[in-house]
Simulated assay, not measured.
Amino acid sequence: MARNIFNQPPKDDQQAAAPSPAPAKPAKLSGSVGGLRDSLREITANSIRDIDPAQIDMDGLRDRLVLEDSSIDELAESIRKHGQQVPIMVRPSNQPDRYRIVYGRRRLAAIRKVGGAVKAIVRTLDDDASLIAQGQENNLRLDPSFIEKSLFIKEMQEAGYKPGVIQDALGLTRQGVSNHRVVIEQLPAQLIHLIGPAHGIGRRQWGDLAAFSEKANLVEIAGETIATLPGDTPSSEKFNAVYAACSSKVRGAAKSTSRGTTTVVNDENGSYVGTLAIDDKAIAVKVARKDNPEFSQWFEKRAEATLKQLFEEWRNEHGTGS
């Protein structure tokens, strides 16, 4: 079904009406007019129209955690300079002269900031076809994060969509859908919205955070942790900070006499640098390569020498012989 959404074959007018061995002239004229009418309808259905954004309703299931953010402003500025390069898709509403969004919510939000009409493809789709079109187009244009896909799956299931439709919408297997759902069921919705989409954070990391939910108030810890971060902190760094704080809280509750702590290390501007984990067995410094790739390379080259230097300083201070 998903492969035929955007390329539905035109109606065959010659097959629609049975041929007559000797058609009368009025019948032939009527058939020509009817064929022309159908052709015009088909052309109109597949053409790009200019529509007033006020006529378009932002209904349907949300597939993004963040719709109003800096990226919308950037997209609006690009459209202001270069025009709308890619049309959105809408489908007719039950109300006259109104439409329902299928995909292109970010583009529609940006054009509402810029002003003017939005270029849109108008297609008549049922709910299943509309959902599949929405999911497939978003996967191609801007890959949703793991947690965004998980929320989308949860909303689709709660709305009563069949498993096959959900799988087609996101291009996932049945097991893939199950993997997303298992994690999302363990996480408070408020926690997810505090952290955001967290691109680059996968199933295992979200699953590890979800595992803390039975031993700590994740929403409370997340709120306190994120409040200490700069306002422009990327969502993935918020996740790292929240995870470290939750891990520290859980370990502290499990063994109050333990020296186990996990500290988030930030620079003077408050940007995430890494984490320092200390317990009775080891001291570990963790620098995430995806957050600071250049610093990670620099640190890797010097880590061994730096550790030896610190050991020599400790030995000299304590007068320990070789």
Score class of each variant (00 low, 15 high):
residue 73 D to G: 13
residue 73 D to V: 10
residue 73 D to M: 10
residue 74 E to W: 11
residue 75 L to T: 04
residue 75 L to G: 01
residue 76 A to G: 07
residue 76 A to S: 09
residue 77 E to S: 15
residue 77 E to T: 14
residue 77 E to A: 15
residue 77 E to C: 07
residue 77 E to I: 09
residue 77 E to R: 15
residue 78 S to Y: 13
residue 78 S to E: 13
residue 78 S to V: 10
residue 78 S to T: 14
residue 78 S to K: 10
residue 78 S to Q: 12
residue 79 I to A: 07
residue 79 I to E: 05
residue 79 I to Y: 10
residue 80 R to S: 11
residue 80 R to W: 06
residue 81 K to M: 15
residue 81 K to C: 09
residue 81 K to I: 14
residue 81 K to T: 12
residue 81 K to P: 03
residue 81 K to G: 06
residue 81 K to F: 15
residue 82 H to M: 11
residue 82 H to Q: 08
residue 82 H to C: 05
residue 83 G to F: 04
residue 83 G to P: 07
residue 83 G to Y: 08
residue 83 G to Q: 05
residue 83 G to M: 08
residue 83 G to I: 10
residue 84 Q to K: 02
residue 84 Q to F: 05
residue 84 Q to H: 04
residue 84 Q to I: 06
residue 84 Q to T: 02
residue 85 Q to L: 14
residue 85 Q to K: 12
residue 86 V to E: 15
residue 86 V to M: 15
residue 86 V to F: 14
residue 86 V to H: 14
residue 87 P to I: 05
residue 87 P to L: 06
residue 87 P to G: 01
residue 88 I to C: 03
residue 89 M to D: 04
residue 89 M to L: 12
residue 89 M to E: 03
residue 89 M to P: 00
residue 89 M to K: 05
residue 90 V to A: 07
residue 90 V to D: 01
residue 90 V to E: 03
residue 90 V to Y: 02
residue 90 V to W: 05
residue 90 V to G: 05
residue 90 V to H: 02
residue 91 R to T: 13
residue 92 P to K: 06
residue 92 P to R: 10
residue 92 P to A: 07
residue 93 S to H: 13
residue 93 S to R: 02
residue 93 S to Y: 06
residue 93 S to D: 09
residue 93 S to C: 09
residue 93 S to T: 05
residue 94 N to E: 14
residue 94 N to P: 10
residue 94 N to F: 12
residue 95 Q to E: 13
residue 95 Q to N: 12
residue 96 P to W: 03
residue 96 P to A: 08
residue 96 P to N: 10
residue 96 P to Y: 02
residue 97 D to L: 02
residue 97 D to V: 01
residue 97 D to N: 09
residue 97 D to H: 03
residue 98 R to P: 04
residue 98 R to Q: 12
residue 98 R to A: 04
residue 98 R to G: 05
residue 98 R to C: 04
residue 99 Y to V: 00
residue 99 Y to W: 15
residue 100 R to E: 10
residue 100 R to P: 03
residue 100 R to T: 08
residue 100 R to G: 07
residue 100 R to H: 11
residue 100 R to N: 11
residue 100 R to F: 08
residue 101 I to Y: 00
residue 101 I to M: 04
residue 101 I to A: 00
residue 101 I to H: 00
residue 103 Y to P: 04
